[in-house]
Design a binder for these strands. Structure first.
Lengths: 134, 134
DNA sequence: TTTAATTAGGATATAAATATCCGATTATCT
DNA sequence: AGATAATCGGATATTTATATCCTAATTAAA
């Protein structure tokens, strides 16, 4: 479903939200806290930063953080930033054409799942989504 | 979620079930019908055959088919045969520990999805599962 | 008995994802 | 000003998944 890169991205952003002090978080710290390979996470953070998903400041005392604007985005934006497309648009069995009219074997089950994700993933802001453990 | 290999495997077995005549199906035919790279599919069929998921006969007029026993298996067996484990046992966000007590962000939604898959994927035989378009 | 059509299996090639390394730049602290 | 701590960006390395190739073994048909 999600690539490792996307999983890392989501977990890191969750961490940033839950530890949203004034202090910016360096990749070294984030990688250690979240048990993610440090140079690899570095690349992911760069990509998220360029995609305006997270904010950064360079230099001593710098690091990554979430601006108020960043927090307004829905989770799907993170996925698209890393994967390059919305993974949920693809057929779970890899059919090029998969629809209600021409469904794959698991289409109806997957459809229900995706429908359940619309609010948390496509509509809610990550700030809302990550508010309470769920 | 599923690797390409597993997707190919599932689609091919679906085809075998829906075209279950006396005639065995060669990899050449299957690959052409299903638009899958032929030598790659060949490897996958070998693996499924060794795993007792499908049956084969060698030599001229030979090919792959499903025995009555093969048809009694649930779909999850195909997944495990190719992936080496049950992909649904893994956390969708890659957490090493992910449970009701210690859930990832998407745990509850994914849990509902997986629950909906128990009957079609873990309990029903593929013969039942593939009976009607759904 | 020869030929053709198939699976089986080992070796290899290619592509993509994952991961690392290093120098440049930037900002802060001393 | 100099040292330090950070991101940025390009290049490269490693690993895994995907894909191909070739030969052997098997079976059936000509």
């Amino acid at each position: 479903m999600f690539s490792n890169s996307t999983k890392y991205a989501i977990r890191t952003i969750e961490y940033l939200l839950h530890n949203n002090s004034d202090e910016k978080k360096s990749v070294v710290k984030l990688a250690a806290e979240l048990d993610i390979p440090q140079p690899y996470l570095s690349k992911i953070m760069q990509q998220l930063s360029k995609g305006d998903i997270i904010s950064s400041s360079k230099g001593r005392g710098g690091g990554f953080y979430l601006s108020d604007e960043n927090m307004k985005r829905p989770l799907i934006d993170i996925v698209v930033c890393i994967e390059g497309y919305n993974v949920f648009d693809k057929c779970i069995l890899g059919l090029k054409e998969c629809s209600d009219k021409n469904p794959c074997l698991l289409h109806k089950y997957y459809g229900v799942f995706k429908a359940s994700l619309v609010k948390p993933i496509n509509q809610d802001s990550i700030k809302e989504l990550f508010k309470l453990p769920n």
